[in-house]
């Protein structure tokens, strides 16, 4: 076989550089090899391109659908969609505004994130770098399991089990730290934004923990040993080698968690006593509502205007999620030179 003497035609394009001397190349087989390769390349490129384009197409189609469905309702709206705190779109005089919903959505999700993130990182680090291997395996399995539990379960657990406890804790916080802006307000009977945030935090915790653990396990041993060889303690090693390396991944995991919190419908609908207010009194009953929960509660019995209004609110949720993701991208992009992956 004359091909036997050829340099391998695969992989490295530099090795097949044209004009390289002393390569007595019989042109026919080489060309054949290259076109075969080209064809594979082209097929792959076409496939991935169409996959990417169809994803964009789907997103675009969703956006167009939402806009088209929302416009008639927005035209019928007798209130200001962007500033009014009412939601009565099924009325003969439809009136609905997004501001209370958007505020409650962002507030509950941000609170959930603030509660979940430190714990999730702790859990992830414990599993990846502290726990004995056996325990780490069990814990990792449990976390993955929790991440797969459907949200209705969290909602039911939140209302049946957690609500009472959160009322007690809320009353305590209100009494002893009432000066703190979030802990004001009266009517501490449960079903508050605080409860919703806690439920959301518990829901997103396993997601963030599970993904972060994966990222932390990816940190090359060589870098961890570099830190240890400098005399780092385990915690110092985690701070110098593990956390910075994992940062983009953790941000990604956080965004995924935040996305789930922002879009969570049923769990929030179950635990929350919704109100169309813009309020920081998270401990109070009727302290807010979220876009997704409002859709869940209103969709079944909505008139066509009502459905249009809910879709318009969905559009706002879409926008909020988009903004959050853009911010995350920007954070990662700003430090891209220092990205962990070598």
């Amino acid at each position: 076989m004359s091909l036997g003497s050829l340099p391998p035609v695969t992989t490295d394009p530099a090795s097949a550089r044209p004009g390289a001397p002393d390569q007595p190349v019989p042109s026919l087989p080489r060309t054949a090899g290259r076109t075969a390769e080209r064809r594979g390349d082209r097929a792959f490129r076409g496939l991935s391109l169409s996959a990417g384009l169809s994803l964009l197409g789907i997103i675009l189609a969703i956006a167009v659908f939402l806009v088209v469905k929302a416009i008639p309702a927005l035209q019928d709206n007798t209130a200001s969609f962007l500033t009014d705190r009412v939601w009565d779109p099924n009325n003969a005089q439809p009136a609905f505004g997004i501001v209370a919903l958007a505020f409650g959505t962002v507030l509950s999700s941000v609170l959930a994130l603030l509660m979940a993130l430190p714990v999730a990182l702790g859990v992830a680090l414990f599993i990846s770098h502290v726990a004995p291997r056996r325990l780490a395996g069990v814990l990792g399995y449990v976390i993955d399991l929790l991440a797969a539990v459907p949200s209705v379960v969290y909602g039911l657990w939140g209302i049946f089990f957690l609500n009472d406890k959160v009322v007690v804790a809320s009353a305590f916080l209100h009494e002893h730290a009432g000066w703190f802006p979030l802990f004001g307000g009266d009517d501490i009977f449960g079903r508050s934004i605080f409860l919703a945030s806690i439920v959301l935090a518990i829901m997103i915790l396993p997601i963030i923990a599970s993904l972060s653990r994966e990222v932390f396990l990816q940190v090359p041993v060589s870098q961890q040993e570099a830190a240890l060889a400098l005399g780092a303690t385990r915690w110092e090693m985690i701070r110098t080698a593990v956390l910075p390396f994992g940062k983009p991944g953790v941000i990604g995991a956080t965004m995924l968690g935040l996305g789930r919190a922002l879009g969570e419908t049923i769990a929030v609908a179950i635990v929350l006593s919704p109100a169309f207010v813009v309020s920081l009194d998270i401990l109070s009953t009727n302290s807010g509502n979220t876009i997704a929960a409002n859709v869940a509660l209103g969709f079944a019995e909505a008139s066509s205007t009502g459905r249009g209004a809910l879709i318009a609110s969905g559009l706002v949720l879409f926008a909020i999620t988009l903004v959050v993701n853009v911010i995350a991208r920007a954070i990662i992009y700003r430090r891209r030179e220092f990205a962990g992956a070598l």
Binding site: P220, S222, Q223, E225, A226, A227, A229, L230, T240, A241, P244, F245, K247, R335, F338, A339, G340, A341, L342
Partner: peptide
């Protein structure tokens, strides 16, 4: 101190 076989500066 220790220097390893493959260079391992902290990438971040």
């Amino acid at each position: 101190g220790m220097v390893f076989q493959r260079p391992n500066p902290f990438p971040t």
